[in-house]
Design a protein around this nucleic acid. Structure first.
Length: 716
DNA sequence: GCGTGACATTTTTTT
DNA sequence: AATGTCACGC
């Protein structure tokens, strides 16, 4: 490493004291509690650059871990912008990407075939279904999804089948399935996502020389979004960390929103205890949002009991108040958003600098419809990713067969697609043959005759024909020769799919160009690990639509958080989960802190959900915000129904039309207050005159029938 | 073997 | 409302 400048390094000039302290920490482990908008990524990348620039470590000695490919890419881009040297020796990537890298290098020691394939979640689920079928397991009693959940949950906790907690008949059966599933994967030479981590963990755990090698190599390990680590990931990190490794963990416990898939904030406390030893730096200055927005976020999150504690502040002014809008219905809410977006856009806020957030994907439909009719360009994030599309998966399955014909999953996916007259019956027989011969379906097909053998010949031919072709051309050939292209050409709705297949060829060309390893295997791993940015739309100025989860890490001038109703946000499911409500509150915190300048919170009195009208109370989170930073855009007195039509509701507020009217002055959907039970919403009505009773769903969750003649209700 | 219609199901998501 | 899964009949 060349000489480095003495004295003040320009690199550090624009950092605040805490950021600078974090960046220039000596060679020891530390925990950085970085609040939303406090410059977390900047600190992380600047530290890497600083370490290298000051000659403390070579790129070779750095391991930086993120959760998403996007974050990894961003980090690399920023580093190379600051540092004119090549970053090749550095290990920067996702947990899964790095595990994959390790396993590809040491496949033999890890007990994997050199060309092992990666199963994504959907592949994994179908592998489980296939296994359960072959074992004659009742899928009513053991839902494949649950089995998958059990397997992954255990893997993510670092437990193999024999270590899985099994105490009753049911869980013991699950553990058996887990064991059989792992055996099947091993037989077929495939690894699911958690397997990548567990396998590389076990590899280093058992292989002392290898462990020593990596421990000596990595002087600095830096981890982004540490609050999202699960048990296995934390253990994985510990294995890489030798006595001379400094761990630099950056995270925000208040933004932990992935507990539902195993993330454990307890890792932060454990890390502080085991590594940081009190070496904790809090980044609390927020550079993103104006004061009122931060006040709202702080007040909200302070109502969580389980926190490490942190309070964001800003040097900016208070800014605008937070706008609250109560809509009659989801459609009303949507048209409100459309109007505001249009106005703001006219005033100069770029559409792409505005985000429309919701708790669950199903909510986007109404919003999209309204935006579409109003000709407001928008872009929806999430949904199906490129490499998850069926045509792409089909093409990839053919490609897998070329390098790894033992992959029964790939075989089954395309053996009869496009249709070749190979049905369930034939395949059952083939599976029988395979089991008896102790081989794969492919082997059985090769020794067989008829249509199945024809398929085997087809694959063989493709293999021959593509052997000497560059990656992209090989893929192009397979798409044609397999009959996929013809199939979609014949399908009148296949145009998009054809285009995607074309895109796949382009992606392969790009991959071959950029990557050092341009083999088909490498490309397949890439496809599984990086599901790919949902296509295009970039460059166009469009309103951003996404779930709150998807918004994490992003920021916008204006943010709309919609559907703030009880049971939607917080989601009703969260009530059944331990600490579920706190996670929902963190989710709300994340949503609020996305906004730089302007924040809208809206809720609707009625909403179409699962094809039925539901009535919801305003979210409790709205009540948890300090009134002085709020601006109520409206307080509507009359709820929205077609007049004269009564709506009855079930347990939760599902409406069914009823013909009778009433003369009491109360209506279904109306908010009312009760002296003892508090406020609630009328969800059903029966009887007339002195017998009239209403069913009220109260804020605390209870539902009661009340006789209007006795109960002292008042409109609220 | 394949296409059709009845039926259930419905959070959040990355890898 | 919309989507996927499954059983049934041709």
């Amino acid at each position: 490493m060349s000489a480095y400048p003495e004295g003040p390094v320009p690199l550090l000039e624009n950092l605040n004291p805490e950021q600078r302290a974090a960046v220039t920490l000596p060679h020891e482990s530390a925990l950085i509690l970085a609040g939303a908008g406090s410059g977390k990524t900047r600190v992380l990348t600047t530290r890497i650059v600083w370490l290298i620039q000051t000659g403390q470590v070579s790129p070779h000695g750095i391991l930086a871990v993120t959760f998403t490919n996007k974050a990894a890419k961003e980090m690399l881009t920023r580093i190379s912008a600051m540092l004119p040297i090549n970053t090749r020796g550095m290990w920067v990537g996702t947990f899964h990407g790095l595990s994959n890298r390790l396993l590809r290098t040491h496949w033999r020691e890890a007990g994997l075939p050199q060309s092992f394939q990666i199963l994504d979640s959907a592949d994994q689920l179908s592998a489980i279904k296939r296994l359960m079928k072959s074992m004659n397991v009742d899928t009513e009693k053991y839902e494949p999804k649950k089995v998958q959940w059990f397997i992954n949950g255990n893997k993510e906790a670092g437990r193999r089948a024999r270590d899985a907690e099994a105490f009753d008949e049911y869980s013991m059966r699950l553990a058996e399935l887990y064991e059989a599933y792992d055996a099947q994967c091993q037989r077929e030479g495939v690894a699911d996502f958690p397997e990548l981590l567990l396998r590389s963990y076990e590899l280093l755990y058992r292989n002392e020389p290898l462990r020593q090698h990596y421990r000596d190599r990595f002087k600095h390990i830096l981890i982004d979004e540490f609050q999202d680590t699960n048990t296995l990931q934390y253990r994985w990190l510990k294995l890489f960390a030798g006595p001379h490794t400094a761990l630099f963990a950056v995270g925000d416990d208040d933004q932990s929103i992935y507990a539902f898939r195993g993330a454990d904030t307890a890792n932060m406390a454990a890390f502080e205890r085991e590594f940081a030893h009190g070496n904790v730096i809090k980044l609390e200055q927020n550079y993103r949002s104006h004061g009122h927005i931060l006040t709202a976020a702080n007040t909200l999150i302070s109502q969580n009991a389980h926190r490490l504690g942190k309070n964001l502040w800003t040097a900016e002014g208070e800014g605008e108040p937070i706008r609250i809008f109560e809509a009659y219905s989801d459609q009303d809410e949507a048209s409100f958003v459309v109007d505001e977006v249009k106005t703001l856009n006219r005033e100069g806020v770029a559409l792409s600098d505005m985000a429309l957030l919701y708790r669950s994907n199903a909510q986007s439909r109404v919003l999209e419809h309204a935006l579409f009719s109003a000709h407001v360009p928008y872009r929806v994030y999430g949904g199906l990713r490129f490499f998850e599309r069926q045509e792409i998966k089909h093409a990839l399955a053919y490609l897998r067969l070329l390098t790894h014909p033992e992959d029964d999953g790939a075989f089954l996916r395309v053996v009869n697609f496009p249709a070749r007259g190979i049905g369930a019956r034939t395949l059952e027989q083939l599976a029988d043959h395979a089991v008896r011969a102790g081989g794969s379906l492919w082997q059985a097909a090769c020794t067989g005759s008829g249509k199945v053998a024809g398929f085997a010949r087809l694959v063989e031919e493709m293999k021959q024909a593509t052997a000497d072709l560059p990656l992209a051309e090989a893929i192009d050939h397979v798409i044609e020769a397999s009959g996929l292209a013809d199939y979609y050409r014949a399908d009148k709705e296949g145009a998009d799919r054809l285009e995607n297949l074309n895109e796949l060829v382009n992606a392969a060309a790009l991959f071959a160009d950029e990557s050092e390893d341009n083999t088909l295997d490498a490309f397949l791993a890439h496809a599984a690990l990086e599901a790919g940015e949902h296509q295009a739309g970039a460059g166009h100025d469009a309103l951003q639509l996404m779930t709150v989860h998807a918004a994490k890490g992003l920021e916008f001038h204006t943010v709309f958080i919609t559907g703030l109703e009880e049971s939607l946000f917080p989601h009703e499911q969260s009530a059944h989960e331990e600490n579920g409500l706190e996670e929902e509150r963190r989710l709300m915190y994340v949503a609020i802190t996305r906004a730089r300048r302007r924040l809208y919170l809206s809720h609707a009195q009625s909403r179409m959900l699962h094809g039925q009208v539901r009535y919801g109370l305003p979210s409790r989170f709205l009540n948890e915000l300090p009134e002085q930073v709020l601006l109520h855009l409206n307080r509507r007195a009359e709820p929205a129904y077609p007049s004269g039509v009564q709506q009855a509701a079930g347990h939760y507020g599902v409406a069914a039309p009823r013909s009778q009217g009433n003369d009491t002055g109360y209506k279904v959907g109306q908010s009312v207050a009760h002296a003892k039970f508090g406020t609630g919403i009328i969800i059903d009505f029966e009887g007339r005159g002195p017998d009239a009773r209403v069913q009220v769903k109260f804020r605390d969750g209870g539902t009661k029938w009340l006789a209007l003649a006795y109960a002292k209700l008042s409109p609220a």
